[in-house]
């Protein structure tokens, strides 16, 4: 018993409050099966950046909400535009990432990181679809077996039903007779 007491102390479930958040012990990202190629670095001298705005007055006179960024890669002529966030700094960052992706696709073709990722994703989806199909096929097959079994048992069940019905009919007849009797008495 003396040996067991420390073990129970270890095993005893910890009191957890419903309000406290429990974190997983491991939070490193799951590695892809295959390492992606390194990102291609585009020197700023190869890019023409344009902040797309009208030719009208600027400064205090107008109050713009859009901060669109357009990037043009000079050697290849690829143009990328991004304006989804309100921050110009953010738009510039994301536009550069987009341009990197486009450029990689242009240069490496199917080896580009976007294509690799897309392939990985489609492969995962295909396998999960396959599993899904297998599962439902199995379910369908199971159902079909049950149905065929039901067909076999159907005759006995019908007889059983008939018995119950006849019983019911007898009862109902009985009650009707009583009612009739009451009516007659009235």
């Amino acid at each position: 018993m003396q040996l067991l007491s420390p073990i129970t102390a270890l095993v005893r479930p910890r009191i957890t409050l419903s309000s406290t958040v429990r974190h997983a012990l491991h939070n490193s990202a799951v590695l892809l099966s295959k390492q992606l190629p390194p990102r291609r670095v585009i020197p700023e001298s190869e890019i023409i950046e344009n902040f797309l705005k009208g030719s009208g007055p600027g400064g205090q006179k107008i109050n713009k909400t859009s901060s669109a960024v357009q990037l043009k890669h000079i050697p290849t002529g690829i143009v990328v535009k991004y304006q989804d966030t309100r921050s110009r700094a953010q738009n510039r960052k994301i536009a550069r990432k987009l341009l990197q992706d486009r450029l990689e696709e242009h240069e490496l073709g199917d080896d580009a990181r976007t294509r690799v990722k897309a392939r990985e994703k489609s492969k995962k989806k295909a396998s999960s679809d396959k599993k899904k199909r297998r599962k439902y096929r199995a379910l369908e097959a199971g159902k079909a077996d049950e149905e065929s079994a039901e067909e076999l048992e159907g005759v006995e069940e019908l007889e059983g039903d008939a018995e119950v019905e006849s019983g019911d009919a007898g009862k109902s007849v009985g009650t009707q007779g009583k009612r009739e009797g009451v009516d007659k008495a009235g």
Partner: peptide, 11 residues
């Protein structure tokens, strides 16, 4: 004068 002519309505 520029205030009435060149600024946008929201400003």
């Amino acid at each position: 004068s520029a205030y009435w002519k060149t600024t946008t309505r929201s400003v």
